[in-house]
């Protein structure tokens, strides 16, 4: 059994966006803080810090995780995808383009988390209904857009249309 005492720090090694990374964390260090402050990946945003807003969403070993409700220790040895890892594969370029064209983001604070959810969602449900898209988006709070642009952008990408 691995144990880490009060105030003790330990090296965490994980694969982030396909690259081997490591840094130090205490038992209580949140994965969101580890990504931002140890690995300098500031694209993962922190809003509510208690699991409600979805801004901090990342993909951890193929599951969506609120990184503010996940401990850095839980990422030890794991594979993580953050917003910095979304690039040219799959439908990512189409998603980016559609989000921009439909006004699916304004300030962008929620967008990092939303895009990781969408990536995971479309992998598991490539042809979602409008209702399913809205249901998935209910896991994110956006204070700017009113969500309509996001729904349109995701539906368009899912249909494979420009």
């Amino acid at each position: 059994m691995m144990r880490l005492g009060l105030g003790e720090r330990r090296r965490i090694s994980c694969t982030v966006n396909g690259v081997a990374r490591s840094g130090f964390a205490e038992g209580r260090t949140l994965l969101s803080d580890f990504l931002r402050h140890e690995l300098n990946l500031y694209g993962t945003h922190v809003g509510c810090e208690h699991g409600v807003c979805g801004a901090c969403t990342v993909i951890l070993d193929s599951r969506l995780a609120r990184s503010c409700g996940t401990l850095a220790m839980q990422a030890d040895g794991a594979e993580i995808t953050t917003i910095e890892g979304l690039g040219d594969s799959d439908r990512e370029p189409a998603l980016r383009e559609a989000f921009s064209r439909h006004g699916a983001l304004q300030c962008g604070f929620c967008t990092a988390g939303v895009l990781l959810s969408v990536k995971h969602f479309l992998q598991h449900n490539p042809k979602p209904s409008d209702g399913e898209i809205r249901d998935m988006l209910s896991g994110h709070l956006c204070r700017c857009t009113g969500y309509e642009g996001m729904v349109r952008a995701i539906a368009e990408v899912a249909e494979g249309q420009p």
């Binding site: 059994m1 691995m2 009060l6 205490e26 509510c48």
Partner: peptide, 16 residues
């Protein structure tokens, strides 16, 4: 909004 310090235990078995 950060947890207070705690000891972290990561057992490999139910017995642990």
């Amino acid at each position: 909004m950060k947890p207070a310090a705690f000891e972290y235990c990561r057992p490999d078995t139910l017995e642990e």
